[in-house]
Simulated scan of single mutants.
Amino acid sequence: MKNKKSIEQYLLGQIEKDNPVQVEKVQRYLNLLDIFYKLDKDIKEHGTLVETKNASQTFLKPNPAVAEKNKINSSLLSIEKSFGFEKVEIEESPTSSGLL
């Protein structure tokens, strides 16, 4: 992953660096990001479906890496939300209809 350092720098710039829990979250996030992209490589190598042989039968089944990638993505999103970096919505200016 080529932008890992910039992501790490960004996250560390957004948190309280003296808070060990926040620093640990950054490390977990980066670790999960590594796993996410390793799964990506596996999916590209083997495809979204893998051939399974069972005695005389051969069949296709979903690559388990796809499901794992979805789980990792959910974990990444969860950590992102726990940082509390949500964008602050810009309040719209009142319209003439809102003044009545």
Rank of each mutant, 00 (worst) to 15 (best):
V21N: 14
I79P: 10
Q22M: 08
G13H: 10
S75P: 11
H46M: 14
V88R: 13
N73S: 15
P64L: 02
F59A: 02
K41D: 11
S56I: 12
E16A: 13
G13Q: 08
E24R: 15
V66T: 04
K4T: 13
K41W: 13
T58D: 04
E89R: 11
L12I: 08
E89H: 11
I79C: 03
I90S: 15
N70G: 13
N31W: 15
I72V: 05
M1R: 06
S93Q: 09
V26A: 03
S97T: 01
T52W: 10
L33I: 02
N19R: 02
E80Q: 12
K2S: 13
E86A: 15
E68N: 09
D42I: 13
P94K: 05
K61Q: 04
F36K: 00
E92K: 03
K4R: 07
T52I: 04
E86R: 08
A55K: 05
S93I: 12
G47N: 07
G84S: 05
K2L: 11
I90M: 15
I72E: 03
K87E: 07
V66F: 05
K5D: 06
N73L: 13
I72H: 01
L100T: 11
Y37A: 03
P64A: 01
V26T: 01
N54V: 03
L76C: 01
S78H: 09
T58G: 02
V26C: 01
A67K: 13
E92M: 04
G13S: 07
L11Q: 00
K87W: 07
I72M: 05
A65M: 00
K5E: 06
I7P: 11
S78R: 08
N73V: 15
L76S: 01
V21D: 15
E86H: 10
I7E: 00
K38H: 11
N70P: 14
N3W: 13
D42H: 12
N19K: 04
N31M: 13
L33T: 02
S75T: 10
K38P: 12
E91L: 11
K69I: 03
L49Y: 08
Y37W: 10
T58F: 00
Q14A: 09
K81S: 07
E92Y: 04
P20T: 06
Q57Y: 07
R28M: 10
L12V: 08
K44G: 11
R28E: 06
S78C: 10
N3D: 12
P62L: 07
N63G: 02
A65K: 00
K38M: 13
F36L: 03
M1D: 09
Q27T: 11
G84E: 02
Y29S: 04
K81Y: 12
L100A: 14
G47V: 08
